[in-house]
Design a protein around this nucleic acid. Structure first.
Lengths: 124, 124
DNA sequence: AGCATCTGCTTGGTATACTTAGCACACACT
DNA sequence: AGTGTGTGCTAAGTATACCAAGCAGATGCT
């Protein structure tokens, strides 16, 4: 069950994202063309996005967020992209995660470190 | 001014994103087909993403992140989509810090891990 | 009246994200 | 010698994100 991903255009969450963008735009007293100009997208496209016809790509979302002085996180969570279904495991916060993400380590080095770490914590 | 967004395919940051995904995939001992299956994308596409030929859309990134048991935030920041300009740095989990605060490790074990970690990252 | 100049929207096209079918090689097993 | 299954990759197509040009109504100006 877990995972019914929906990647059709213009369904559900994307629609409300459009409403969100529209309300934020109006709140900032910007016309579509003005916002589109700042966010470097075309105004017809913005129109379609606001009505939920298309789901904008992440960098477009980021541009729009910046143009509206919103954080990208806010935008993504409105878009349902930060959905912390599996995301909120900072509680886990673990050594393994830190190792995996460290850009200074090679894959082999990561494997070695994790193996050692697991051997250390094997009985707990 | 000078908001020079770059939306060309396969440049700079996207390339390193591919490397990141690849290393995470190998770290999880998954083949391309296995990861693609879990993330619900096709394996040739995953191949191209890993080599930086295309920049995957946000929901694909999220799928991949979930499949790799990573948070979506981690993925997005690797993709350069979340500038962490505002100093909320749970993204900066240092490995050493994570080791130091891990309650399951003894002091000796922590010292060993940190020593190994430092030897790995000595030249960077 | 006419002509600007806003507003958001539609049409038609291009670029690129993404898929299905299949190739080429490597390592098992009979 | 096969034959089967694993790996990643190429080729060719479809779907969709995105853009440039232009339309219709509302407002304002002379």
């Amino acid at each position: 069950m877990s995972d019914d991903e929906e990647r059709t255009p213009a369904s559900g969450a994307w629609r409300s994202l459009g409403d969100f963008i529209k309300s934020q735009r109006e709140l900032a007293n910007l016309s579509m063309r003005q916002l589109a100009e700042i966010a470097k997208i075309s105004n017809p496209y913005l129109s379609q996005v606001e009505r939920g016809l298309y789901k904008p790509s992440a960098d477009v979302l980021k541009s729009i967020a910046n143009a509206l002085h919103l954080s990208a996180e806010t935008m993504y969570s409105q878009a349902g992209l930060l959905d912390n279904s599996a995301g909120r495991d900072e509680s886990h916060h673990g050594v393994e995660h830190a190792i995996k993400v460290d850009p200074r380590l090679s894959t082999d080095q990561k494997e070695s470190l994790i193996r050692i770490y697991r051997s250390f914590t094997a009985g707990s």
